[in-house]
Amino acid sequence: GREWTEQETLLLLEALEMYKDDWNKVSEHVGSRTQDECILHFLR
């Protein structure tokens, strides 16, 4: 997939603090990424 922007990464980190590993909520918060993309990015 395409590179994550700084904004997307910030949203991901913010969402992780709020929702922990509720990836459905996390991906909704990021908006432009799927659950799978969020998980894969997080694991890097």
Rank of each mutant, 00 (worst) to 15 (best):
Gly1Leu: 09
Gly1Ile: 13
Gly1Ala: 12
Gly1His: 08
Gly1Ser: 12
Arg2Glu: 13
Arg2Val: 12
Arg2Trp: 10
Arg2Ser: 07
Arg2His: 09
Arg2Phe: 14
Arg2Ile: 15
Arg2Asp: 14
Arg2Gly: 09
Glu3Phe: 13
Glu3Lys: 12
Glu3Cys: 04
Glu3Asp: 15
Glu3Asn: 13
Glu3Trp: 02
Trp4Met: 08
Trp4Gln: 15
Trp4Ser: 09
Trp4Ile: 14
Trp4Arg: 09
Trp4Tyr: 06
Thr5Gly: 01
Thr5Gln: 08
Thr5Ala: 04
Thr5Met: 13
Thr5Trp: 01
Thr5Val: 03
Thr5Glu: 12
Glu6Trp: 07
Glu6Arg: 08
Glu6Lys: 13
Glu6Ala: 12
Glu6Gly: 07
Glu6Tyr: 07
Gln7Asp: 05
Gln7Leu: 02
Gln7Ile: 15
Glu8Asn: 02
Glu8Met: 03
Glu8Trp: 00
Glu8His: 03
Glu8Ser: 00
Glu8Asp: 01
Glu8Pro: 02
Thr9Ala: 09
Thr9Lys: 13
Thr9His: 10
Leu10Pro: 05
Leu10Thr: 14
Leu10His: 12
Leu10Met: 06
Leu10Trp: 08
Leu11His: 09
Leu11Pro: 02
Leu11Phe: 09
Leu11Ile: 05
Leu11Thr: 11
Leu11Asn: 05
Leu11Glu: 05
Leu11Cys: 03
Leu12Gly: 11
Leu12Asn: 00
Leu12Gln: 04
Leu12Ser: 02
Leu12Arg: 01
Leu13His: 07
Leu13Trp: 05
Leu13Ala: 14
Leu13Arg: 13
Leu13Phe: 09
Glu14Arg: 05
Glu14Val: 02
Glu14Leu: 02
Glu14Met: 05
Glu14Thr: 07
Glu14Pro: 00
Glu14Ser: 05
Glu14Asn: 07
Glu14His: 05
Ala15Gln: 01
Ala15Asn: 00
Ala15Glu: 01
Ala15Phe: 02
Ala15Ile: 00
Ala15Ser: 10
Ala15Gly: 11
Ala15Val: 00
Ala15Met: 01
Ala15His: 01
Leu16His: 15
Leu16Thr: 15
Leu16Trp: 11
Leu16Tyr: 15
Leu16Asp: 06
Glu17Ile: 02
Glu17Ser: 05
Glu17Phe: 03
Glu17His: 04
Glu17Gly: 06
Glu17Arg: 10
Glu17Thr: 07
Glu17Pro: 11
Met18Glu: 08
Met18Ala: 13
Met18Ser: 07
Met18Ile: 06
Met18Cys: 07
Tyr19Ile: 01
Tyr19Ala: 04
Tyr19Trp: 09
Tyr19Asp: 06
Tyr19Val: 01
Lys20Asp: 09
Lys20Pro: 12
Lys20Val: 08
Lys20Phe: 06
Asp21Pro: 11
Asp21Arg: 14
Asp21Cys: 08
Asp22Met: 13
Asp22Arg: 06
Asp22Ser: 11
Asp22Glu: 10
Asp22Lys: 14
Asp22Gln: 08
Trp23Glu: 02
Trp23Ser: 02
Trp23Ala: 01
Trp23Val: 01
Trp23His: 01
Trp23Cys: 03
Trp23Met: 05
Trp23Asn: 02
Asn24Ile: 08
Asn24Lys: 13
Asn24His: 11
Asn24Arg: 10
Asn24Tyr: 09
Asn24Glu: 11
Lys25Gly: 10
Lys25Asp: 05
Lys25Asn: 06
Lys25Met: 14
Lys25Cys: 09
Lys25Ala: 12
Lys25Tyr: 03
Lys25Ile: 03
Lys25Val: 07
Val26Thr: 11
Val26Phe: 09
Val26Asn: 03
Val26Gly: 01
Val26Glu: 04
Val26Tyr: 02
Val26Trp: 03
Val26Asp: 01
Ser27Thr: 13
Ser27Asn: 06
Ser27Gly: 12
Ser27Ala: 13
Ser27Tyr: 05
Ser27Leu: 04
Glu28Trp: 12
Glu28Leu: 05
Glu28Cys: 07
Glu28Ile: 07
His29Lys: 05
His29Trp: 03
His29Glu: 02
His29Val: 04
His29Cys: 04
His29Ser: 04
His29Arg: 07
Val30Tyr: 00
Val30Gly: 00
Val30Met: 10
Val30Ser: 01
Val30Phe: 12
Gly31Asn: 06
Gly31Gln: 03
Gly31Leu: 03
Gly31Pro: 08
Ser32Ile: 08
Ser32Glu: 13
Ser32Val: 07
Ser32Phe: 05
Ser32Tyr: 07
Ser32Pro: 03
Ser32Asp: 13
Arg33Cys: 00
Arg33Met: 02
Arg33Asn: 00
Arg33Gln: 00
Arg33Leu: 00
Thr34Phe: 01
Thr34Cys: 05
Thr34Lys: 13
Thr34Gln: 14
Thr34Tyr: 01
Thr34Ala: 13
Gln35Ser: 12
Gln35Met: 09
Gln35Arg: 12
Gln35Lys: 14
Gln35Val: 10
Gln35Cys: 12
Gln35Asp: 11
Asp36Cys: 08
Asp36Gly: 11
Asp36Pro: 09
Asp36Leu: 04
Asp36Trp: 05
Asp36Ser: 11
Asp36Thr: 10
Asp36Tyr: 04
Glu37Met: 04
Glu37Ser: 03
Glu37His: 02
Glu37Val: 00
Glu37Arg: 02
Glu37Gln: 05
Cys38Ser: 02
Cys38Pro: 01
Cys38Ile: 04
Cys38Thr: 04
Cys38Gly: 01
Ile39Ala: 13
Ile39Cys: 13
Ile39Lys: 15
Ile39Tyr: 13
Ile39Asn: 15
Leu40Ala: 14
Leu40Trp: 15
Leu40Asp: 15
Leu40Cys: 13
His41Ser: 04
His41Phe: 07
His41Gly: 04
His41Ile: 03
His41Tyr: 13
His41Val: 05
His41Lys: 14
His41Trp: 08
His41Cys: 09
His41Asn: 12
Phe42Pro: 15
Phe42Trp: 15
Phe42Met: 07
Phe42Lys: 15
Leu43Gln: 15
Leu43Ile: 12
Leu43Glu: 15
Leu43Ala: 14
Leu43Arg: 15
Leu43His: 15
